[in-house]
Design a protein around this nucleic acid. Structure first.
Lengths: 193, 193
DNA sequence: GGTTTATCTTGACCAAAATCAATAGAATTT
DNA sequence: AAATTCTATTGATTTTGGTCAAGATAAACC
């Protein structure tokens, strides 16, 4: 149990047996069926979810009722509304399962406790946070500086597994485009993948 | 010296006198004249800069030679190419001063040392990192889901000081727009500010 | 197995932003 | 003080992506 989680953890910060045991006490397993919600807007994000198996997404709904996907997450990734989780304010995001999922949940209480009592958790969290920031920075740079064709090419290059497992119109939504436009981009660049 | 830096630090994590002294040993003051570079693309980002006074920006240049501003930073903010800083790979970003600046520099060596020897620095860095991520997430959400008018309104609302101190065409660049389009947005919404 | 629903593509048309160009006022430089 | 550079606005035109609509295929559901 928790194989993917601890393999990721040990890849970033090496844990001893006893440390691993200590962390384990704070974790909760959870299964989610496809289309089930982990978080709905208006609620407070009470847990961060680490994905052992499956695929999830987070999205917001704008004033016209249109969905906009903020992020995808596959095995080995974490998902949650960090802003709501840390401040305990209500969230504007929705998070649901794109496939049946096996998750490892970390509650706010568990998170706060581990930050205090398991120094390596603080390190692990800092590293994940930094990596997430760098990835988001890269995405922002590509939005403000690249052509749509290049943005899509770089996306399939960086996340081929997402392209394979997620419907195309959701990738369009993630890029801030209409499905029709993404379809035309693909035909322009030769439907690679 | 370092007033703004330590006031920010203590706001996030309270330091004792001796801890403050320990941190001080790792800091380097630096003044930059307007238009001077802190980092040029092709170089490795060797320091993170904390701004005591002045204004800076980071930007990338695309394949057509066009500049795209990634971020602004004023007093109390930090700036640097985190990806290059942490991995010690060459940077694609340029960082320069928009006004004469007084900076506090933290080198990679100082950063690594403090992470090990000053636990509260690790906490401080984790908190800054988390806040930066949340801000960038908010920006990304606004890009994929809001109208340009609303994005600009929310920008002047959130960063009135930047709007006042930075030329309009740079704000257009930061939003990924042409200067003409931003000018037209302003005339549409009534030139607020 | 057959129906319904989801997904993707393509075309026609429309709306929005980019580009090109000209102007004018501010701010810097010399 | 004059000249130069930077900045912002406005108009005309072009380009790009969005919207609407129809059709085709594939997948999920009963």
């Amino acid at each position: 149990m928790y194989e993917v989680f601890f393999s990721k953890f040990n890849e970033k910060v090496q844990l001893s047996e006893s440390e691993e045991y200590a962390v384990k006490q704070f974790l909760t397993p959870k299964k989610l069926r496809k289309r089930q919600y982990l978080l709905q807007e208006g609620d407070i994000c009470k847990t961060v979810a680490f994905i052992e198996k499956g695929a999830m997404r987070s999205y917001i709904v704008d004033s016209n009722g249109q969905e906009h996907i903020f992020s995808f997450a596959l095995e080995g990734w974490a998902i949650g509304d960090l802003s709501s989780f840390l401040t305990e304010q209500i969230s504007t995001q929705n998070i649901d399962a794109l496939e049946n999922c096996e998750l490892v949940l970390i509650s706010k209480y568990a998170h706060d406790q581990m930050l205090i009592s398991v120094p390596k958790y603080a390190t692990f969290f800092r590293i994940l946070m930094t990596e997430a920031y760098i990835a988001l920075q890269k995405r922002t740079l590509s939005i403000i500086s690249m052509s749509l064709d290049d943005r899509y090419k770089s996306f399939i290059d960086q996340y081929p597994d997402i392209v394979q497992r997620v419907p195309q119109h959701m990738i369009a939504s993630h890029m801030g485009l209409s499905p029709e436009t993404l379809s035309r981009i693909r035909s322009r660049i030769g439907k690679s993948q």
